[in-house]
Design a protein around this nucleic acid. Structure first.
Length: 435
DNA sequence: CGACTTTGACCCGCGC
DNA sequence: GCGCGGGTCAAAGTCG
């Protein structure tokens, strides 16, 4: 697989069709074409037979946690709709919430939502709850991604949240848990460390404003303890327990170590229980970078490579060795480099919406996340934004990509499928280049 | 020769 | 305390 660094247009002429798009490739492709039209929406018409599953989420949540959430505007939601819908219908894949309110900061803060008089955080839920991931791509927008246990999907919600009061006295240790209505989940839920754990697990960090808090919590939570916490809580909602973020991406690939734009050094390999395929351990080779990733093949499908990023890149993707113009960095390496460096990167190249203005959704621009005055988007946003574009659910449903324990997963991008072809077709339409 | 991979040993947390 | 399992270390080997 050839790789490139942030300048898709310059590298496409060199690029031969990969066996399967790497995470990096996918993200960059999708970001590049994001401003033109929502490609996934066109590629993957939204199924219409799942509305029942989506309906009444607010009621389900309310019933589950015994209080009434603010209204969730899910009227127009179909699976992936807010992410993949054609821009003619919805100009932004991000669902707006209260203006002036930063869902990113909210969700990255340990006291997120807890200052809301409408929400009284319940006790931590059982650890086999589905995960609720929340992210935004700007101050005025937020998207909630929900993976339910039996059916991974992203369910955008429009949550009206109060504007946080300045100086409000908020306990920093609290978290918000948003339990799901699902009740049939078996308690033998696989822990995070189990082979091919599919949970999209992340510990949301607000590195801009709360490093001191994170540091304190880091001291209290060594890696094993943190892992235990993750297992025990299954990360319902977004709880900041450390600076770490863990993202699990799976994709179909012939390569054992698909390129993601960063340089990694393999420091270990282990066969873990429940998976005959060894798990490889990689560290980022960038000096001072502590990001690690685990790569393993699926126990059930060896064609699926599961990559778990653990940590945050605080540097740009390096230029590959021996690279000439082929790997010449794109715009992100120049004027926007500084901005990129102010943000966090989690196992991903610095080519996402915030440092690639071309991909910025116009409505998001109007809300300010990509202006010079806006805080840089954090890596959770970056990741989730990209991941939200992955054509996941239709693929999984059609191919039965459910894994042990029915744990929600990030989904594979099968090579040769309509998914992949669709992406390529969209690239062709947008750039006039056949890939 | 430097970067990277391989691989067995070791460490440590956890459950029993 | 002991065994298990996941994660890490580090020496040796490989590659370009």
């Amino acid at each position: 697989m050839s790789d490139f660094d942030g300048n898709f247009m310059e590298t496409t002429s060199y690029w031969n069709p990969p066996a399967s798009p790497s995470p990096r490739t996918i993200f960059e492709m999708l970001n590049q074409i994001d401003d033109v039209v929502n490609p996934i929406a066109e590629i993957f018409p939204q199924p219409t037979d799942q509305s029942e599953q989506r309906s009444g989420l607010g009621e389900r949540l309310a019933a589950r946690i015994e209080f009434t959430l603010p209204r969730l505007e899910t009227d127009n939601i179909s699976p992936f709709a807010a992410f993949f819908r054609n821009t003619n219908d919805v100009p932004s894949p991000m669902v707006p919430i209260s203006p002036g309110f930063s869902p990113s900061a909210l969700l990255q803060s340990p006291n997120m939502l807890s200052d809301s008089p409408q929400i009284n955080p319940p006790s931590p839920v059982a650890n086999y709850e589905p995960q609720v991931m929340v992210e935004s791509c700007g101050e005025g927008n937020a998207t909630t991604m929900i993976s339910e246990n039996d059916l991974p999907h992203y369910e955008p919600m429009n949550v009206a949240l109060p504007t946080p009061q300045e100086g409000s006295d908020i306990p920093i240790e609290e978290s918000v848990y948003i339990p799901s209505h699902e009740s049939h989940v078996e308690p033998q839920y696989a822990p995070l460390d189990a082979p091919l754990v599919a949970s999209f697990d992340t510990e949301v960090v607000d590195q801009e404003d709360n490093d001191d808090i994170a540091d304190k919590q880091d001291v209290q939570a060594s890696a094993p303890k943190r892992r235990k916490f993750e297992t025990s809580s299954n990360m319902i909602g977004a709880t900041r327990v450390s600076k770490n973020q863990r993202i699990i991406i799976q994709m179909e690939s012939d390569e054992d170590h698909p390129d993601d734009g960063f340089r990694w050094r393999k420091y270990g390999q282990k066969v873990v229980k429940g998976n005959p395929n060894p798990r490889s351990y990689y560290k980022c080779t960038y000096e001072g970078c502590n990001v690690k990733k685990l790569v393993e093949r699926g126990a059930d499908d060896v064609n699926v490579v599961v990559t778990t990023y653990d940590g945050i890149h605080e540097h740009n993707a390096p230029v590959p060795r021996g690279s000439g113009s082929k790997f010449r960095s794109g715009p992100s390496m120049s004027s926007q480099d500084d901005q990129t460096n102010q943000t966090t990167q989690l196992g991903m190249p610095p080519s996402s919406c915030y440092n690639n203005p071309v991909s910025v959704d116009t409505t998001m621009t109007s809300t300010g996340p990509f202006t010079s005055l806006a805080p840089p988007m954090d890596m959770t946003q970056l990741y989730m934004t990209g991941l939200s574009k992955l054509p996941s659910l239709p693929v999984n449903q059609n191919t039965g990509f459910m894994y042990r324990n029915d744990e929600p997963r990030m989904d594979a991008i099968p090579n040769g499928t309509d998914v992949y072809k669709g992406i390529m077709n969209r690239l062709f339409l947008n750039f006039g280049t056949r890939f």
